[in-house]
Design a protein around this nucleic acid. Structure first.
Lengths: 341, 341
DNA sequence: CGCTAGAATGTAAACGCTTACATTTATAAA
DNA sequence: TTTATAAATGTAAGCGTTTACATTCTAGCG
């Protein structure tokens, strides 16, 4: 593999000049530039990125940590980030935290050991305190789907409370009054915000929160099934179930179907995230859109601005969810509405 | 950030000794090792990976190129690869080809410019010739989901022909005789192999291939819909549709449903890939399993063996698909079977 | 034609490690 | 004890860049 030294010899110039040509830095006469370029071409020269990074102390890499790599959210996220970074000649170094506190911390260590110029973090398991404590130990970093006091400017988040509100509100609007809720793990901020939105919607409609109708899940399909079954077993007049994510919703959908409840005429079902396959379901799932791709692009903007000094890039921190009304939700059954008069 | 030099000073030893402790290479007295370790701890020392790689000419990074980053296949793939590599202290450098020949080539250039020790390639768009020509220009590389003559040992592939055979065979077994097929792009090897398997199954059952019933798609959902509609519009006595992947199958499913055909009693539907959400559909999709995770792990084995000289790792090149029988396929309608007597 | 300011190019010192080789120190046999 | 041998440690030369600074051109002016 050719080195810069061989290029300089072949072109009859010094190392510095070759370097200048490569980086478009400093002044180089056109004729000289051409000679250098020719030599590079001829030798099929590829700069050694390690030497570059070692000498310049920058890697043109931004580390991306996702809490897990499968799941539709992350595919979209990675695609958006990768595309956007390439556009600016930067590269993504991706690591997976596999949904585990220790592994997430290790992945952060890995990324920072690779001298990333900046980090984009999508972490679930790590605590706010830990992240705050990393502020001065890591390269500049932004976070996706988190809102942490004291570093709000570094958080690209979704207004989860509002999303939770929208989901339940859409049901209330359609006459539902007995709405069960399957939440995410309450120690996670997004999960509790979604639930808070649900509660607010209820209150707004003058309904009292019935604690028997709120179940805490873990965002996984089987739990959606299990808790939906639990809800049905209550034998209360529930006419709608809101799930804190689409995964649990699909689990719930299956149980409802197997127990011969027709969605949405007997019972409405609403999810959250607007995962790709939510529109493949039958009935198509009503859900709340989580604009991952937009948020990811915004994270890249942040990085470009903060770590690479690019200008004129708008950064927006909080994104708005949106209700995607599809087939799985509809008006409350008439009988039930009557009963509530 | 502390350097090896400061560590060596604090520990009262030479650079070489510190390096030896870090890499467990050479002999170091226990007492010395301890001193060094203490010093590292005390200084919160993190080796500079660029300097390491520059000096040692290895990066401990394996480049992974996926043709695209979204889609369930790739999530599973990346998770498996990442997990497995970590187990051996190696890291994955991931790049996305975004399903485009030029971009895939660029991504390869990127990965090789980052001095990866080895590459795992999942590429669709690049030609066999190109890949063959890269044999001596790149670090050792394996490919997933490709079978190329002249580099069979570097290919981890699925027996797609057999998978195609299984899909159609399962239908023939159940009395179907008019089976339509929606294929993938025929210039892609996997797509044409799947179709070949379909044809073989037909032949085996003494049926002639009806060209009117074979449509070429592009593996995307809307195309599945469009072609399923085209099949129905034929007004031929089709009792089953085989799709070359689950994406197109879900598109087809939607059209069948909207035209009031009941699956599987009126018409059976079979997919391919066993994508995660294929079991979320209603009815649950019968499909052919594509063991991505297993294959990915195998690719890692190859890398560990060829690039890092690890021993005792089995490498298997061809994987067998398996029929996953679910709800979307069933016996041919009786009327139809009678007609065929 | 000499002079000077800039432009263009060159020189050489980092960057932080690894590693072949040299040197010192410990171990054990004689 | 010596002495031979092995173990432990140290020395210093790279690895392939970038970049501050030094030097040499070049062009335009008086």
């Amino acid at each position: 593999m050719a080195t810069i030294y061989e290029v300089s010899k072949l072109a009859g110039v010094s190392l510095a000049t070759v370097s200048r040509v490569m980086n478009n830095s400093g002044k180089v006469r056109d004729a000289t530039r051409r000679k250098v370029l020719d030599a590079m071409e001829q030798l099929d020269y590829q700069p050694n990125s390690f030497a570059q990074s070692l000498a310049s102390n920058r890697s043109n890499c931004v580390g991306v940590l996702v809490s897990e790599m499968h799941g539709p959210i992350f595919g979209e996220m990675l695609t958006a980030i990768d595309t956007e970074l390439h556009r600016s000649g930067k590269f993504a170094l991706i690591a997976g935290g596999h949904n585990d506190e220790e592994k997430e911390a290790e992945a952060i260590r890995f990324l920072s050991s690779r001298n990333c110029d900046a980090l984009i973090l999508h972490v679930e398991a790590l605590s706010n305190e830990f992240l705050l404590s990393m502020l001065d130990r890591l390269p500049p970093f932004v976070m996706i789907n988190r809102e942490i006091e004291g570093m709000a400017d570094r958080c690209i988040s979704l207004d989860n409370e509002h999303g939770g509100y929208l989901a339940t509100h859409s049901l209330l609007e359609q006459g539902h009054t007995h709405i069960a809720y399957i939440s995410g793990p309450q120690e996670w901020a997004d999960a509790s915000a979604r639930l808070a939105g649900h509660n607010r919607a209820l209150t707004e409609f003058g309904l009292e929160l019935d604690e028997r109708l709120v179940f805490e899940g873990d965002y996984l399909v089987p739990t959606g099934s299990r808790l939906a079954a639990a809800i049905l077993d209550l034998e209360l007049p529930v006419t709608a179930i809101v799930c804190a994510n689409d995964e649990m919703a699909v689990g719930a959908m299956e149980v409802l179907r197997s127990r011969k409840h027709v969605i949405p005429s007997d019972i409405s079902l609403v999810g959250y995230d607007n995962v790709r396959w939510s529109s493949f379901l039958n009935p198509k799932l009503t859900t709340v859109n989580y604009p991952v791709a937009d948020m990811s692009r915004m994270a890249v903007n942040w990085v470009l601005k903060q770590a690479y000094g690019e200008e004129g890039l708008p950064v927006r921190n909080v994104f708005e969810p949106e209700l995607i009304r599809r087939e799985s939700s509809g008006p409350a059954p008439v009988a039930d509405r009557m009963a509530n008069l």
